[in-house]
Structures are given as structure tokens and as C-alpha cells.
Amino acid sequence: MKDIFIIGSKGIPAQYGGYETFVDELVTRQVNEGIKYHVACMTFNKETKNYNYNGAECQEISIPNIGGAKAILYDLKALNWSLDQIKKDNLRNGVVYILACRIGPFIHSYIPKFHKYGFQVWVNPDGHEWMRAKWSKPVRKYWKVSESGMVKNADLLVCDSKNIEKYIHETYSSYNPNTTFIAYGADIVRSMLTSDDKKVKKWYQDHNVKQNNYFLIVGRFVPENNYETMIKEFMSSDVDKDLVIITNVEHNKFYEELKEKTRFDTDKRIKFVGTVYDKDLLKYIRENAYGYIHGHSVGGTNPSLLEALADTKLNLLYGVGFNKEVGEDGALYWSRTPGFLKNLLEKVNGLKVNQIKNLGKKAQQRVVEEYSWKKIVNKYENRFLEK
């Protein structure tokens, strides 16, 4: 039996989030019975639970809600739990898989402790967290130092993007990092909802949106997702459709600055509609969008991009390596050059039905061939079971 401890997700069953969905899919779709998963789950409750989820042992790790530093504390407490379990149950020959690079300054002291029991320490480096504009300069500096520590000490780095893997080797060549590429996943499954369902009717009526008559954006409300460019370019276009933005919008400093710079509140086509946590409803909204606009500029294989390629026929992606690697010829690309996205929007607004269908087929083919959860889980299981 190969014991796999997974550290760094908020927990399963997944409510939201890329890492949470990944761990849920990995556990739920397990094929090889020679693997036993142990998953750390974050909680702010003082009383913790240990429970079984689809064969995985799930242990809640209690931490105080202390802002950004809570994720670092959570990872460290989860590592201590893993080590205690390994000692208590006399486990040997396994993997401790850490998601994200939050604990670089501390990881070196844990590696020999896990090696003592025959456990390797793997890390998923995620994207360029240190580049995210939401962090202050001191925090960004910490992220960069932390990334360096994780890369230097990990036995294996599992990169979900070829561009991230390339970056790791170019930036940290002196460490001679051991890496592998296993992507994130998605599935081609139609929504179970129809236009007659009550929640479908209510959502479209509440937001005054017509099916197949809107461009869609789904993503975290942060500057590096290029909201300013997407909104400005859409507003300057003569597109006769709405721009529906599904995001965790908060009337914070970024929101107010964005409103001041773009005056999006003066354009009735721009519609911030909040979040949609109902997965089937979100899938339906994607399927019935005229097109999807993806502005993410930081990170690896982005979950919302894969979901868009699986569900939406027409995808307009910000033209960076991460996005091109995933979309290839199944999408169209834009830059931040003023007027570029405006012109692309006006062009695709006049595409014929068969042209959009062909793009949609290519997008779905990318998901089927390279990003299906069945394929991703199989790759992970094979790698876990390697001697």
C-alpha cells in the first residue's frame, strides 16, 4: 500500500477552488487500490473531525483565522499531523504532496524527517504567486523566497503547466530541480439544466440577460486577471451584446479604482452579477454564452479556462504562454495593445454559426485529448506507484 498525504487544499468535498477540485477528483476517481489517500482539511473550529470521503482519510486541521498568514500555519500544522500519522501507524514508502509554495523557509527541516520513514516530499508549485498584484511588496518577496526554498528542497516538482516547468528549470537551474508535467483536468459533460428550469429562468431574469446574447468572464476579482483591459475594450466596441462578469466582486479599493478608470457604471452592457457556486447552473451559463473572455495573466493551467473550453464554443484568451499552451487552435488570442481586443470582439460578433461551431469542436478536442480527469488521475496514480 502506498500512502499519499495531501497538504495545502482547503479540503474535500470541494466547495470551490482549483486545488480542492483536484483533490476531490483524484480521490473520487481512484482506480488503483494500492493507494491510500490522507487529506488535510482546513477548519477554524477548535473541535476537529476525522472522516472518510470516498476511501480517503480526511483530517481537519484547526487554525486561527489570522489573515494571509493562516495558510502558512495550516500547511505547517498539516505537515506535523502527517508526520505524527506516519510514526503512529508505522507507515513506510509513501509521498507527502504539498500544494503551492507557501512554506519554503521551513520545508528544509521537514525533509529529513519524512525521508527517515521512506517518504518523498513532492510539491506542486502552482503559478507565479509572487507576481500577483494583490500582494504587497514584502509579501511578494516572501512568496519568491518561499518558492525558491520549495524548489530547492522538494524531491519532485509536479507542474500543471509546461510553461511553469520551463520557468522552474530556467530560474532555478543551479538547484537542478527534478520535475514532471501533469496538467489539471476537466470533463466534457453537458449541463443537466434546460431553459425551462426555475433557477435558470430566475438567474437570467434577475440579471436581465438573454441566452446566447452575452460575452462572459469568470474569475477572481484581482488586477492580474486584466479586468481593466477587458472592460475598457468591450466598452469601446460596438458589440450589441452584454458583458456578464461572474466574480467575487467586492466594493473595495480595486473596484472603486476600476469604476473610476473605466466608468463601467455608465454602460448598461457591463453586468457584474456576483458569484455562481451552483456548478450545474454555471455550466449552463457557460454553454449559453455567445463567447468567453479569459484575462488571466499569472499561473499555470487555469481551471476556469479548461471549463470554458469544455463548455463555451467561442473563447477569446489573453495571449500569454500559459493560455496558448492550453487553448492552442481551439481559441482566439488578444493582447493588451489598445484597440486589439475591441477589434477582435467586433470581428467575432459577426462570425457565422458554423465558424463558431468549428472553434468549439477544436476547444473540446483539446480537453478530451490532453485534460480529461480520467487521463490526469491515471498519470498521478502511475507516478505515485513508481518505485
Rank of each mutant, 00 (worst) to 15 (best):
L193Y: 13
Q365R: 07
P13Y: 02
V31I: 12
D126W: 01
N343S: 14
R286H: 09
T21R: 12
G339F: 08
E20D: 15
W135V: 06
H38Q: 08
L282N: 00
C41D: 11
K201C: 11
V145H: 10
D24L: 08
A40D: 04
T194W: 10
Y318C: 02
P177G: 03
R383F: 10
G339P: 03
I7N: 05
T43D: 08
W203A: 04
V368E: 10
N252L: 05
G67W: 09
K49R: 14
A14W: 05
T229Y: 06
I356L: 00
N213E: 13
F221E: 04
K113F: 04
D206R: 02
K162I: 09
Y333E: 04
Y167Q: 11
D311R: 04
F272Y: 07
V353S: 12
T28I: 10
C41W: 03
K374P: 05
R92D: 09
D155N: 12
T43C: 13
D24W: 02
G127D: 01
K36Y: 04
K77R: 15
L314E: 00
V320P: 01
I86V: 12
K232G: 01
H251K: 15
A186Y: 03
K313R: 05
I217W: 02
L345S: 01
I164Q: 11
K375D: 13
N45H: 14
K324G: 06
S136N: 11
N54R: 15
K116Q: 15
L73V: 14
W143H: 12
K141A: 15
V368D: 08
S146D: 07
L216G: 01
K357V: 05
P64I: 13
E60V: 06
F234D: 01
F119A: 00
K342P: 04
M1N: 06
G330M: 00
K152H: 09
K137H: 06
E33N: 12
N50F: 12
R132T: 01
I66H: 11
E325V: 00
R190I: 09
M42T: 05
P303W: 03
K144P: 01
N226K: 09
E165M: 10
Y284S: 05
H296L: 05
D3Q: 07
E369I: 12
L345P: 00
N90W: 07
K379H: 13
G149T: 06
K324W: 01
T180Y: 04
F322R: 11
M1Y: 04
N252K: 06
Q205H: 10
N80K: 15
R336W: 07
K261W: 04
E129G: 08
M235H: 06
H169L: 11
L76T: 05
T247P: 04
K46I: 13
V31D: 13
Y292V: 02
Y184M: 15
T229D: 06
K253N: 15
N213P: 03
R336G: 09
L26Q: 03
Y167H: 10
P223N: 03
K116V: 11
L79I: 07
T43A: 13
Y16W: 14
S195V: 11
W81C: 06
T275E: 14
G104N: 10
C101W: 00
N93E: 09
W130K: 06
K201V: 11
G350M: 04
L83E: 07
